[in-house]
């Protein structure tokens, strides 16, 4: 799949933002007044920045409001509804903390669940697609949720929890990569089943329908990026988990904490780039490429 920057920025930052919102919502003794303002500014900034970025790849962003209508069937629509609901509820919760010094725990819990629900619906947009076997697994939702919860813990300064979660997320990521590497072969789709000619012998693509790449090839076949996939996986894990763990284990300073967060974000973005670049779509079969 084509790793579009808008979608990588969207999933990385809105995941972190909604993860942080979830922690802020579940917090039993949250900051109030100005301190609360800064926490919510970061969380809303990430969540909304990511959502706005996702509209950049639309052909007609001015019609985006129509995307709230089909929540009965479409995960993308559900994500939109869930995101707006989470932002609205957490907005009320934040306003009570910032302006009225009032903590409304139940509102926070609802907002936190909606925030995690937003991350889950985002993950289902990808996990539902049978055309991309690497994504078509419940592990994709687990992956997105663990990234969001871990990033949220790190951003909200919960050092001990973040250390444990970083290890768990590393394990989930490794598991997801392992099952993803054999997912296409396990799905059973080949050029033989794609053309119906597989039982007659070996099928080979002899000529494309056109002389240069079309929309389908640009969107679904991304071969170049996979060349360095293994190295990028190691870099991603190093930045996402290893470096932040080392920085958090060192005596606490704000500089180290900031570096840990920045390194984590870079690691998540790298992992998301691989999420798209390594994904193979069944359309590639028709072109004799994946």
């Amino acid at each position: 799949m084509h790793p579009a920057p808008s979608v990588i920025i969207f999933t990385t930052f809105s995941g972190l933002g909604f993860g942080l919102l979830a922690w802020l919502g579940f917090d039993a003794s949250p900051a109030k007044g100005w301190a609360a303002f800064w926490w919510f500014l970061i969380a809303f900034g990430f969540a909304c920045g990511g959502l706005i970025s996702s509209t950049f790849h639309l052909g007609h962003p001015e019609r985006a409001l129509k995307a709230f209508t089909q929540w009965r069937t479409s995960w993308l629509s559900r994500e939109g509804v869930c995101a707006v609901a989470a932002l609205f509820v957490m907005g009320l919760y934040a306003a009570a903390l910032i302006f009225f010094d009032t903590h409304i725990p139940h509102l926070g819990w609802i907002g936190a669940l909606l925030s995690l629900g937003t991350v889950f619906t985002t993950s289902m947009i990808y996990a539902q697609l049978e055309t991309i076997p690497r994504w078509n697994t419940p592990l994709t939702s687990l992956l997105y949720l663990s990234y969001a919860i871990t990033g949220g813990a790190l951003l909200s300064g919960r050092v001990t929890i973040a250390l444990i979660l970083l290890l768990i997320t590393t394990a989930v990521q490794l598991l997801w990569w392992k099952q993803g590497d054999s997912a296409f072969a396990d799905s059973g789709s080949t050029l033989g089943t794609a053309t119906g000619l597989g039982d007659r012998g070996e099928v080979r693509s002899m000529a494309h329908p056109h002389t240069s790449p079309n929309y389908l090839m640009r969107e679904f076949i991304h071969v170049i990026g996979r060349k360095h996939a293994q190295k990028l996986r190691i870099i991603s894990l190093g930045l996402m988990a290893v470096l932040p763990v080392i920085l958090l284990l060192l005596p606490f300073t704000h500089v180290f904490a900031l570096l840990a967060v920045l390194s984590h974000i870079a690691g998540v973005a790298t992992s998301r780039w691989l999420f798209f670049a390594e994904a193979e779509h069944t359309v590639g079969l028709y072109y004799g490429m994946r």
């Binding site: 799949m1 790849h57 639309l58 052909g59 007609h60 962003p61 019609r63 985006a64 129509k66 995307a67 993308l76 947009i125 539902q128 697609l129 049978e130 055309t131 991309i132 789709s189 794609a194 079309n214 929309y215 389908l216 969107e219 679904f220 779509h281 069944t282 359309v283 028709y286």
Partner: peptide, 27 residues
């Protein structure tokens, strides 16, 4: 008139039957 050009339907189609028009931004 309702298509926002998100491209998800093209992702969901196994056959490559849908193409996003690069000029109009609709499927």
């Amino acid at each position: 008139q309702d298509c926002i050009g998100c491209g998800l339907c093209a992702w969901a189609c196994p056959y490559g039957a849908r193409e996003l028009d690069q000029e109009e931004g609709v499927m």
